[in-house]
Nucleic acid binder design. Sequence first.
DNA 1: TTTATTTAGTCAGAAGTTCTGACTTATATT
DNA 2: AATATAAGTCAGAACTTCTGACTAAATAAA
Lengths: 152, 152
Amino acid sequence: MRVSPPSFPEQAATLGALLRRPYRQLSGRLYAEMAAQGFPEIRPAHSAVFRHIAPEGSRLTELAELADLTKQSMAYLLGYLEEHDYVSIGPDPADARAKRVRLTKRGNAFIKALLAASQRIEAEAGKIMGRAKMQQLREALVALDQAIAELP
Amino acid sequence: MRVSPPSFPEQAATLGALLRRPYRQLSGRLYAEMAAQGFPEIRPAHSAVFRHIAPEGSRLTELAELADLTKQSMAYLLGYLEEHDYVSIGPDPADARAKRVRLTKRGNAFIKALLAASQRIEAEAGKIMGRAKMQQLREALVALDQAIAELP
DNA sequence: TTTATTTAGTCAGAAGTTCTGACTTATATT
DNA sequence: AATATAAGTCAGAACTTCTGACTAAATAAA
């Protein structure tokens, strides 16, 4: 004698929904904090660059591949970041077709601030939910990522 | 004597990164499968509707609030879904200004298929990483979501 | 019970993110 | 040397979401 059908995703709490909610929350907090700390130009899309750029610099195409974006999309993001002095884009000495993208001082400062804020938020959440559970969560997320990669 | 600075997010594995990766993977697989199963029109943005729509139907404004979107954005998504016969949009008998959005047969079929695929993928991943760990993961994700909500 | 306010939704326009297709130039292969 | 491949660019479009201004209906206040 069911009163209301539990057949809708919100109640069903799919794994996807469970992952999405905290991710969104975290993301929102983080970028708001970065804006407050003097990096207001950075939007979530730009993380595609910051996540993958190498300390010695990276090529546009390389970044595009790592971020799973087209070269055009990556070029768009990089143009914006160059304009706002987060990266510099110069010629690649080894290949006249290619460009070398490097973090500027400001770009490095942004990453440092983002990492610090992220760790602080994680630590605070850890205090609330328990550090052991947070550690379990991390391990389980790594395992999940691995498991999904092995899926047929 | 550090050789390469570990100061970049990809290596740092922030909690955000750990959540994002499997979420993206899951999402990608799920929508590809839905397309293969006869629902090619549905894109991730539309989940904002399916996640929140009530069995008896919902109002546009209500859906917008639940999804944390503007009414205009929700109207855009609903228009598309109505065109493709996933929802019907009719007048609300209780309020002449309002509209009532209901899932069509096709909309219900989509949700059913999405849920089934999601559960199947989760079960398969569970077989690989261990069902106990998957259960731990679910619990930890709920705890994390709760903890983030309690953050200052 | 008029008047004022709030609520539901629309219209117009824009910004941002990402895509496809066609192209140029430089490098690598044959 | 001729051909194929790789790095990026240019032009244009689709999609997602936003802001601001608006209409019409419902609710609250005077």
